[in-house]
């Protein structure tokens, strides 16, 4: 992780580590493993101003969290997904896998459906930004893969999420 960060940072000419968000996944297909793949900002894509520092920070963030029984995306989630949409468009050889998750309450199969809705919400948004649907692969793990094994609102909030992962075609 830190090696990847350092490489990407070098490409961009240095930003503070503090901007880089929490843990993304560590797949072998992670685009940041390749130092030649920098970010090429496309002006106007976001329809809003975004510094390259913020863009990098968001690109390293690959988890979208959800409220209880919700698959709604917040403004901040959309800002995050804009960055990933652009990255996908800039890197046509990459696909994205989106995994939806829920908290531990209720039926396992019903939670699979809720997790799928979260993954689908992310996929639909990326599509709306021009990413072809056939490059987005969704799966729901329902409540089968919690990151926080505890019970209670704090653990549940951590577990209600969609996780983005880049992968080679």
């Amino acid at each position: 992780m830190s090696f990847r960060k350092i490489v990407t940072l070098a490409v961009l000419g240095g930003v503070t580590l503090g901007l880089i968000g929490c843990g993304g996944s560590k797949g072998a297909n992670d685009p940041f493993a390749d130092s030649s793949e920098g970010i090429k900002p496309v002006s106007g894509f976001y329809g809003e101003h975004m510094s390259s520092e913020e863009e990098l920070g968001l690109l390293n963030k690959k988890i979208v969290y959800f409220a209880y029984d919700s698959n709604n995306l917040t403004q901040a989630d959309m800002r995050l997904l804009n960055v990933h949409a652009k990255y996908l468009l800039d890197h046509p050889k990459l696909d994205m896998r989106i995994a939806g998750h829920t908290d531990e309450r209720g039926s396992r199969e019903y939670n699979i459906a809720l997790g799928q809705r979260r993954a689908d919400a992310v996929a639909r948004y990326l599509e709306s930004k021009g990413v072809p649907a056939n490059r987005l692969h969704t799966i729901s793990y329902g409540k089968e893969q919690p990151v926080d094994l505890g019970s209670g609102e704090q653990a549940w909030a951590q577990n209600r999420r969609a996780v983005l992962e880049y992968e080679d075609k």
Binding site: E109, I112, A113, Q116, T138, S140
Partner: peptide, 11 residues
């Protein structure tokens, strides 16, 4: 393996 469609294959 019986089904492996995109999205949910469940229940």
């Amino acid at each position: 393996q019986l089904t492996k469609y995109p999205g949910i294959n469940g229940a």
